[in-house]
Design a protein around this nucleic acid. Structure first.
Length: 256
DNA sequence: ATGGTAGGAAGCCTA
């Protein structure tokens, strides 16, 4: 089965592109981020008519995640434990067949030195706590999303320019590494160790035509899922279209 | 050249 993750930067603005992607690529599961819509206003019918089930966790204006799947989505959990006061819609889980998936929109954290950066780091620690539980349960789990973290300099078109950015700071990379070192496999990295495998290009300064990208969208797999991993890659095509999201889909193939 | 663009909201914030 193929599982994709895509930060669509508004599901309403991207609905024609999203529908085209579902029709042409037809992944079994799609994890969405930055849907930017309350649950009641999510365009569920337009997606269901293409043969997908829909589970959503949204809010007004900002954030918002969703899971789309051809098969039923069961045992949906919304939100991340560890901070009862956190009202931002950035995390959800669901089970599709034998695979538990999570759709993750990790805080950006810029500018560094503000409460936004502190929120990012504490959010990453909460995610790590949740991943520990999933590993202890020996779940076949695919954690996909916009991690707002470049794991290494090879994931950045201009490392010196991003040295002090929240996406590349040592604190961010240390927490990302501590997450992966629990025993997760970075699916795209496993198949593409080379530099320049980007998933995001800024709207500004002609970043896309100049290939000034970052790799910040990831699929992290628990060992039972990694055992079944057969392929993974970035699909650059959607980023090149008119009215594109600034992110492009990342996918992996898991043996049934 | 401390800029630039996109989206949603509402006359700015987030990215």
């Amino acid at each position: 089965m193929r599982i994709a993750t895509w930060n669509v930067n508004s599901v309403k603005a991207r609905l024609p592109h999203l529908r085209g992607y579902l029709r042409e690529e037809a992944p079994d599961i799609v994890l969405l981020q930055e849907t930017k819509v309350v649950d009641e206003a999510f365009p569920a019918l337009e997606i269901e008519e293409l043969g997908y089930n829909v589970a959503v966790h949204g809010q007004k204006t900002y954030n918002g995640v969703a899971i789309l799947a051809k098969r039923p989505i069961e045992d949906v959990v919304r939100g991340l434990d560890g901070d009862a006061a956190d009202g931002q819609a950035r995390y959800m889980e669901g089970t599709v067949g034998t695979v538990r998936v999570a759709s993750i929109y990790l805080p950006n954290g810029n500018p560094v030195g503000t409460d936004k950066f502190a929120y990012k780091l504490s959010w990453m620690a909460r995610l790590r706590d949740r991943v520990k539980e999933l590993l202890e349960e020996e779940e076949t789990c695919v954690l996909g999303g916009d991690y707002n973290a470049c794991p290494a300099d090879i994931d950045v078109y201009d490392p010196p320019a991003f040295a002090d950015d929240a996406l590349c700071r040592p604190e961010t990379r240390n927490l990302f590494r501590s997450l992966v070192f629990l025993g997760l496999t970075d699916a795209v990295r496993a198949f593409h160790p080379e530099p320049g495998v980007y998933s995001y290009w800024d709207y500004q300064r002609g970043a896309w035509p100049k290939d000034h990208g970052l790799r910040i969208d990831h699929l992290l797999l628990t060992p039972p899922a990694a055992d079944r991993l057969r392929a993974a890659d970035v699909d650059r095509r959607p980023r090149g279209r008119e009215k594109a999201s600034d992110h492009t889909p990342v996918w992996c193939e898991i043996e049934e």
